[in-house]
Design a protein around this nucleic acid. Sequence first.
DNA 1: ATAGGGTTAG
Length: 530
Amino acid sequence: MPTSTAASCVNSPLTLAIRAAADQGRPRRAIALYVSSFRSDAAAHRSCPFALAAVLKSVSRLPAHALAAASFHAHLLRLGLLAHPYPHAALAHLYSRDHPDAARSLLDETPPAGARSAHSLLVSRNSLLASLLRSGDLPAARALFDQMPVRDVVSWNSMVAGLAKAGRLDCAIELFHQMPERNAASWNAVMCGLIAHGHLARAREWFEQMPVRSNVSWITMISGYAKAGDVQAAASLFERMENQNDLYAWNAMIACYGQNGCAREAISVFIRMLKPHICVLPNEKTFSSVISACSQLGNLRFGLWVESFMCSLGIELDDHLRTALVDLYTKSGRIDNAFKLFRGLRTRDVVSYSAMIVGCGMNGKLSEAIGLFKEMSDAKIVPNAVTFVGLLSAYNHAGLMEEARACFAFMSSKYNIRPSMEHYTIMVDLLGRSGKLDEAFQLIMKMPMQPHASVWGALLLACRLHTNVELGEMVASKCFELAPGESGYYILLGNIYAQANKWDKVKSLRKTMMEMGLSKMPGSSWVQAA
DNA sequence: ATAGGGTTAG
């Protein structure tokens, strides 16, 4: 009987190692440990139900496990452990994600046995319920929930969370009020649904009313503000949070800054988190955000330090992290390194392809960019706006006007992607530098959004290149208007005047700059340019 | 000890 082996194997090195790996969120390691036990003489240990439960839990965390569930089912059957409550519940969980029917028949036809079986059955049903909710089958979930002879707070929470996420907020709240017992997760479930459906203010009220808040409550609220771009609100909640040692909270705050264009703040939060009185170590998620922030700032030196620090912590490179590093490396011109990282990805998706294509575009690798685009199309990965930023900038770099124009048109006609500010900027730059100043100007006028100073700036650069004083003055006035205090545009206009030998204009422009307090010019001198 | 709530890349 399973119980007799259980007593002897609970603390066996194999079981402990597998459980430790599973608890640390290293499912592949847990599975590898179990598999390797077949090469040694450890038959008694590898039939430990607790080890198997941990292995099954790990398998369920891996992406594709349809086949694994059936083979573990057979394995458990052969070991005579199928009826043991823990592996049984873990198997039901494994099945439940992709094969709810198989999970259901396991529960109905091969119920667990022994003292803990009633509770195990509840756990298994909760798994099944969660998977039905995940797959969006609300009626089936509701039916299961109603049929369950025993429900606990997890069952209720799952149901409330499922309804709330599906947008059935009123239903969710009604069910919430019917709960016989509530914990922080119950409140979180409703709050999470409110956030997901754009009711940030209501979510905040809900948050403030909670009798007990868990870390998850804080983090859910912080990331809600992060996604809505309210960095201030997120930051003030983060500062109010008492538990300084929750890695998720640090990660949420760093990501919040990084995703909202506050890369500098992201880095300073990261540095704060490394202070000795904060007892958390950054993980791969932290580093993904931090490396992205370094990349945004163009701070490659710090980025490379971060990378070496990360290696010293023994962090394994996952796909997100590799993609962030691809971005960092391409920005520092280490395109070969970037390619190596890219080729080492476990799975390539639109994000990693786009990072690599943008990197090629930036480094003038047109044929590589096109090759990657073909490759991703063949793999049926649908390009997005960022992918086209990369392609267009590759064409821009190579000065290929017609190809870029075709690409720009193709982007909307075939993929239905509305060109963004960035796409327009690249097109204006390319048109302008090819001498098609009028066409570039017309394109700006046709933009459906208010052009940024940088778009006009690209045209201003072209005016200098082609010494067009008349258009240059007009364009520069747009730049001054949209980015007051930005001395670079004054300098560009000054360069145009100098090239055209309009020294009186140079003089009066300089006077204006002095008056505006813009006299400090970085590096360039327009006298030299003349 | 098995179930539910949160954080990552262009």
